[in-house]
Design a binder for these strands. Structure first.
Lengths: 420, 420
DNA sequence: ACAGTTTCCCGTAAATGC
DNA sequence: TGCATTTACGGGAAACTG
C-alpha cells in the first residue's frame, strides 16, 4: 500500500533542511500477537555512525519518541507518524569536524533510524530499521545539489544504505538519465519531456561528453558558462513551475532547441512562425524566435531577450506573446508572432491561456494594460541541421518514485515500512 | 554624546520583532569611585509589570547579563552593549491572557529594565533604569502599525513610561504631524517633503477630518478605501525606498496631488507635459499623467495604470519614463512624455537616471531591451483649482530622532544612559 | 582573500487562536 | 465564522569559517 510521500520540500523527499520541520512515518508490516502495552518508536539521526564518516553531525531537536497506533484507513496495521521533527547541527564536536571535506555537503549522506522494543511471552524483541540515505542542507540554495544526489543515488544503486556512494559515484547511461529527466518534468510540471526534447538534451550532453558521470552533470560547469548542466536544467524546471505551467502543459514550449536547430526548423516556415525555447546562456530564461522575410526575400530571424522570473511575474507569458510588438523606425507596430511552430495560428494555440484583457487602441477601461515588449535583431546566417534521432521513449516514470517511497526489510522476521 | 541608534529594523528603533535579534546599550553617566569588581548589568523585559497591563508576555531568550566595560572612544565611561538579544512570547500563563484585548498588539507598550548592583565602602548601591516604551511585533507586516505607535508616543508625550498611553491617545496638531511626516521621508528616503507636498497631504487629511486623532490616522480606513491614511503613506515610503530613490531625491515626484489638482496644474501646460504622482486608490503605486490637445484643440489628460513594486522590479522607473510609448490604431508610436512639470525637458531631467541602453530602432546588440508600456484614457473634465497655502515649513527634523535616542535620569543620583 | 556553507531575516502564505 | 495575530519557510544577502 503506497502513500504520497511527505517530504521536506514539495515532492522532493530525502532532503532535510536544518531548522525546517519534516515528517516521517513508520509502519509495522506484520501483525503482532497481542501486545498489552503501548509500542514506543524512537527516531535517531545518524545512529551509531562510525566517526569520521560525515563532516557534519546533526541531532533531532524536537521530541523523537512516539507511540504506535492502529491506522485508520488500513487493515489494522500499527504505524506512527512523526511530525514537526527538526534537525540542528551539533557544533564543535571534539574541536574539529570529522571528515576531511572531500565531499560537498550535498554529497554527504545521512540516515534516520527507528527503534522499537517489546516483550512477548517473556521474550524481548528489538525492532530496528532505517531510511534510505538522506541529504541535509541548510539553505534552499542547496536544494538543486541535494536533489541531484538523491536522484543519482536512487537511479544507480539498489543498496539501502551506501553512505560512501559519492566517494566514487557510478556513471549512468543516457537511457537511464533520460528517464529521470523526463520523470522530473512530469512530476514537477505535469508534462514530461517528449522524444524530441530528450533528443535535443541528449545531443547537448553527448555532443560534449561521452560518458555521463556525476561530476560532469552536477558539479562541473558547462564549457564557457558559469553554471553546470543540472543547475541550468533545474532553473528551467523552476521557471516552468512558477510561470509557465499552462504553456508547458500544452506542449507549446519546444524548449531545448539550440540556436542552430531553431533556425533550421524555422527557415522554411511561413513568415511569422515562431517557437519557444529556453535560454542556453542565462539561468531560468525563456525566449521566442520568429522568422521573417526581408524585402529582398532573404530569411531573417529575430529573438527576444530571455524572460526571467522577474519579468514574468510582472506579466504572464501568454499575455506577453499576445501583446508582443516590435517598434522600428516609422513602421506601424504589429505583432510579428503569427504561427506557433510548425503552423498553429497563435490565438488558436494560446487563446484560452490569455489572462488579462487584450490591448485595444481606445477603451473605456480606466486603466488599460498594454504590454511588455522587447526584441532583438538576430544574425541571418542559417546553420546546418541534423535530423533528430530519438534515443528512447520517455513514457511515465513511477520507477524512481517507487524507489523513493521505499520498503525495507529489517534484520529479524519483523518488518517496518518507512516513508519520508 | 549621541550615537546612531541600533534598531531592530533599520532606523526604526523601539520596535522589537519576536525571534529576531536586537541590540541595546546602557552607559553609566557618572564616574564611580574605584570599584574593584566587575559591574554586572542585567536586562529584564517588562520587569515588575502589573499583571493585566499587557495581554502578551515576553521574555529574553538569550543571555541577559553582561559586565560593563570602559568605552574605547569616550571619556572613560562604563558601558555595556547587549547584542543578539531575542524575545519570545510566554505561552499560556495562567491559562488565559492578561488584558481584555482592547488594544491591538502594536498599541501594547512594553519596556526593558537594566539593573546593576555594587558596593562602595560597605554601602550597597542599586542602579536601575528602563527604556522608553517598546512595541513588540511578530511579523514585519505589523511594522507600519508599530512604527505609527512609536511616532505618536514620542511626538505627543514626554513621559518616559506611560504604558497606558494608547488607552486614550492624545490628538496632534497638523503642525506637529507634518513635521514628523517630513522627517519620515527625509530619514528613510533622503529627501523630506516640500511645502507643496505637505500642503497637499494636509488638505487630503483636513479636508476629511478636523482633528488629527490617532485612530483616524492609523486605524480607520480612508472613506471608500480598504486602507487607512498611514498604511497608504507607508506603502509609498516603501516604494520610494526600494524603487524610486534617485527620482525622489531629485524632487521629480510631485507625489500627493489629487486628480483634480493634477488637471488644474497641467491644463495650461504645453502638450506632453507630465507629472508623477502616487496612486490614491492602490497601495504603493506611482503613475504619471500627461496633457495632450485633441485635434479640435480640446485639452485631454492621460494616465497610466499605477506601477507597483512588482512591475518596477522588472524595469526601473526612469527607464519606464524614457521608453513609454502609446500605441493606438495605425499611429506610429511616440513617447508622449516630453516635459516634466512645469517645463523641464524629459531627458534633461531624467537623463542621468537612465539605467539600461535606450531603445533604438536597429542595433547590433544581441539582445536589445525595448520597453514596458501601459496607458489609459482619462476623462477630459477639468476641475476647479485652489491655490495652495503652505501650513508650515518642513526643514530638517532631528527632533524626534532625539526623542528616540533618549536620556533618562534614574531614581538615585546615579544615572544611566540608554540606547536601543 | 576566498569559496563553500550557514545564519539572518524580510515578506508571503498558511495556520492558529479568539 | 471572520478577523487578528502568529508561525512557517522560500529566497536573497550577509556573516561566518576554515
Amino acid at each position: 500500500e503506497k502513500q504520497p510521500c511527505m517530504p521536506t520540500h514539495p515532492q522532493k523527499p530525502l532532503i532535510i533542511k536544518t531548522g525546517v520541520q519534516f515528517t516521517t512515518k513508520v509502519r509495522l508490516l506484520v501483525k503482532l500477537p497481542e501486545v498489552d502495552y503501548q509500542l514506543k518508536v524512537k527516531t535517531t539521526f545518524d545512529k551509531d555512525l562510525p566517526p569520521g564518516r560525515v563532516s557534519r553531525q546533526f541531532f533531532i531537536l524536537t521530541n523523537n519518541t512516539k507511540v504506535m497506533d492502529i491506522e485508520d484507513y488500513s487493515n489494522g496495521c500499527l504505524s506512527v507518524e512523526f511530525r514537526h521533527l527538526q534537525l540542528k547541527e551539533k557544533k564543535y564536536i571534539n574541536g574539529t569536524k570529522g571528515n576531511e571535506g572531500l565531499l560537498s555537503v550535498t554529497e554527504e549522506l545521512h540516515y534516520l533510524s527507528f527503534e522499537a522494543c517489546f516483550t512477548v511471552q517473556g521474550l524481548t524483541i528489538d525492532l530496528e530499521t532505517c531510511s534510505l540515505p538522506l541529504v541535509v542542507i541548510s539553505n534552499v540554495s542547496q536544494l538543486p545539489g541535494g536533489w541531484a544526489s538523491v536522484m543519482w543515488y536512487n537511479l544507480l544503486t539498489d543498496e539501502p544504505r551506501n553512505l560512501a556512494f559519492f566517494g566514487n559515484p557510478p556513471r549512468a547511461t543516457w537511457s537511464q538519465l533520460s528517464e529521470v529527466l523526463s520523470w522530473q518534468f512530469s512530476t514537477f510540471a505535469g508534462q514530461g519531456l517528449n522524444r524530441e526534447q530528450l533528443t535535443m538534451l541528449g545531443e547537448k550532453l553527448l555532443g560534449m561528453f561521452c560518458i555521463l558521470c556525476y561530476s560532469i552533470l552536477f558539479k562541473e560547469n558547462i564549457p564557457g558558462k558559469p553554471f553546470g548542466f543540472w543547475m541550468w536544467l533545474d532553473s528551467i524546471l523552476e521557471l516552468i513551475k512558477k510561470h509557465l505551467l499552462p504553456v508547458w502543459n500544452e506542449n507549446f514550449i519546444m524548449g531545448f532547441v539550440s540556436k542552430e536547430m531553431e533556425r533550421c526548423l524555422l527557415k522554411d516556415r511561413r513568415p511569422g512562425t515562431f517557437l519557444l525555447r529556453f535560454s542556453e546562456s542565462h539561468l531560468g530564461g525563456i525566449t521566442f524566435t520568429w522568422v521573417e522575410h526581408n524585402d529582398n526575400g532573404e530569411v531573417k530571424f529575430n529573438s527576444v531577450e530571455p524572460y526571467t522570473k522577474n519579468r514574468l511575474s510582472a506579466l504572464p507569458f501568454a499575455d506577453i506573446i499576445r501583446d508582443y510588438k516590435v517598434i522600428s523606425d516609422g513602421v506601424v507596430p504589429e505583432n510579428p508572432l503569427k504561427f506557433l511552430y510548425p503552423d498553429i495560428p497563435k490565438d488558436e494555440a494560446f487563446g484560452r491561456l490569455y489572462n488579462s484583457q487584450p490591448s485595444k487602441g481606445e477603451s473605456a477601461k480606466p486603466f488599460l494594460h498594454l504590454e511588455l515588449m522587447s526584441y532583438s535583431h538576430a544574425s541571418t546566417t542559417p546553420l546546418s541541421c541534423q535530423s533528430p534521432e530519438p534515443p528512447m521513449t520517455p513514457g511515465e516514470f513511477n520507477m524512481l518514485n517507487e524507489h523513493l517511497c521505499f520498503d525495507i526489510d529489517t534484520v529479524s522476521l519483523h518488518s517496518l515500512y518507512i516513508l519520508i
